[in-house]
Nucleic acid binder design. Structure first.
Lengths: 222, 222, 222, 222
DNA sequence: TATGAATGAGCTTTCATTCAT
DNA sequence: CATGAATGAAAGCTCATTCAT
């Protein structure tokens, strides 16, 4: 019953993944240029040459790794979101998933900055393009959510949709930064999982609370 | 009348600055590792060896350059802020200054990500420490502003001060991102200065508007 | 009736030959070092590892291939020459066969130079030795022909036999070069077979004409 | 009085030459691909990186070295030839210079075969083109000599000029081969200079003797 | 002080060879 | 016998750093 062709494909795929996980660690620790493929190979417990059986070159490994992680994030987001959800509930879920993802994949944090920093050689261009396309898609999706919320009267119409989107994204990313830089040191490794989960739930609530109602004292309530 | 000691010091200082400005350009274009000191020297119209008369090594040059630019930003912020100002007005000014600074020094944008990305060799640690100290100071300062605003009743007490601070910072940084990545391409070079200035003013207003009052439709007003 | 042992030997021999033909193509295109065994294997439609079942290593494959081709040339020469032939007629035949062979196996042309160039690792020595032995044999054979022709009075005695031999060989090799480098480009691929055959006949005639009678105007004839 | 600019240029030029001489040795011993720049550097008593201050890359070093040697040969030929010379005397001189050159620069012998073998990667093309141009020039020059000799009645008109040219070149190259491969081993190192010089003179005479009058017994003389 | 030629460690990449299947 | 994934030595090349001038 076993299909040897498929078996091989699976094995190859698993190994590719193993390599990308190792690459993720090394690229996260060192950034792109200073990361040595020697180290990636050692981390993956394979020979240096083997890398080249799975990836064309260093850049291909880098791109592959980035996209692999981003796919995992996108997948998780899509799994937890349905079209029937309330826009604001959807935003809450998105925020939660992203925060949770970065909490659990803190290695990925540095990589994002590496990508954003633009220290990308010529051929990285295609990666950058892909990343921007994804970012653009996310922004467009958020715009649609906000627009819908405006229609249903949940959100004010006198603030530009795009500004709301960027405010929302900024608040999420700031929370991720906060998680990673605590007391001036890069941590977030030494707390219990439940602590983090609670934290994230609270964080998301706070973000939406501020986004929706602001921080100004509500004088009218009195 | 002229003090030869001071003259020399001034000359040396000017040259250091020239080098850092050249370094800023190159590091911005290439990132840390791929930046070649050859290119910095060429840009500064000096010999490569001369760099080592002003900086200990590449990392020192990088740190120096980063801190030099951050000092310029801090200086500008301090110049435009006085202790007698209203907390919220102060926050507005801070936001404006930061956005304006990054608009005018767009090269610096990538560098910040480079620093954050952690492509930092051992000795970069001290730079990272300094940067985090500055960040910590800024955060503490913002905390004091928020606390004061809470005391004067301008800001609700039931949201944690630190959360407000991070929301604020996130929204500013997101705006900076937005300025630099427009339509998926890194631009912000091709608009008139007045356009940008207006934009920034509007941006800051929107950020504070959202932060203070939120985006939710105000049902109570009716 | 079939002898399984012999059948296997034949099969093995055929495969060896197939491999050498593929190797000939690749070595001709690339030379020794830059030729990749991957490519040889692909060309021969076998797995890379299989090469090592037929040849000890790359050098063995190279030597084997060279000698295989040289054997084919020697075989052809021997087939067309008999002991009863006139020495000069024999030389004509040798020249014709060699020119014809290189015209038909132009890939082999570069290989000869590769061998001569000495890009030969340690173990190539044995190949070089074999080739020199063959060359030596050819030279000795030609010496005998010339000596015989001297005896029969066809050739002057006052020119050293060995000098005549080298002159003859040089003229042949030069003609081969000429065939391969025409107008500064390496061609000899784009002419009809009959054109080439005629050419070769004429070439051989010219070579022997010059070798025998020289190019000087014959004043005595008048 | 000393011009520092010129001094530097001279120094640089001398070093370039030193490197090319070292490269000549290594490329001659190993051929192109197997030659390690490490070894060239060691031979020239410089660091590997220094090579790259004088040559763009390995191919540039190779091309430079080849052309450098060919220039030296061409220079010598031109110095010893004048327009007023008899065509046949000129050919004699050319032959002598070439044989003498290869006798004195026996390292260059292997290199020529390396170049001819065509194991030349993409960018070698420009070298190959240059070499073919030079070869073409030499051939054209010889054609003019032969044509002139035909006009003055020294050389028969019924043999094609180009065939005479190739016969002449082939005989010279064959003599060079003969010098380098004696008794199946590559030698020519272990004979006195005067022996060689005499040898070369005799060689050239023999070549021209054969080329002009052939080897056939002159029956008409009797 | 300023120079820039020289250095050599360290990187990416290739590929002949092996060996478990 | 045949396979081809895995290996790791070896090579070309870059560039931060030094130092004689």
């Amino acid at each position: 019953m076993s299909d040897p062709k498929n078996d091989n494909d699976t094995k190859r795929s698993k190994k590719r993944e193993k390599i990308m996980q190792s690459a993720l660690k090394v690229f996260s620790r060192k950034g792109y240029s200073p990361a040595a493929l020697d180290e990636v190979a050692r981390e993956a417990s394979i020979a240096k040459g083997t890398l080249y059986l799975y990836f064309q070159d260093k850049e291909d490994l880098f791109s592959g790794t980035i996209l692999y992680v981003m796919d995992k994030l996108a997948e998780r987001m899509q799994k937890n979101i349905s079209d029937t959800m309330d826009p604001i509930e959807t935003m809450k879920t998105l925020a939660y998933e992203e925060l949770d993802f970065f909490a659990k994949n803190s290695e990925f944090f540095g990589l994002i900055h590496t990508v954003m920093s633009g220290n990308l050689l010529g051929n990285h261009r295609s990666l950058l393009k892909t990343i921007n396309e994804r970012r653009f898609e996310l922004i467009e999706y958020l715009k649609r959510l906000i627009t819908e919320a405006k229609k249903t009267g949940q959100i004010k119409s006198d603030i530009e949709t795009v500004d709301i989107v960027y405010a929302f994204i900024g608040m999420i990313e700031s929370s991720i930064d906060q998680m990673h830089f605590i007391d001036g040191t890069c941590t977030a490794h030494d707390r219990s999982q439940s602590d983090i989960k609670m934290d994230i739930g609270r964080k998301v609530d706070t973000i939406l609370c501020i986004l929706l109602d602001g921080v100004r004292t509500d004088r009218r309530r009195n």
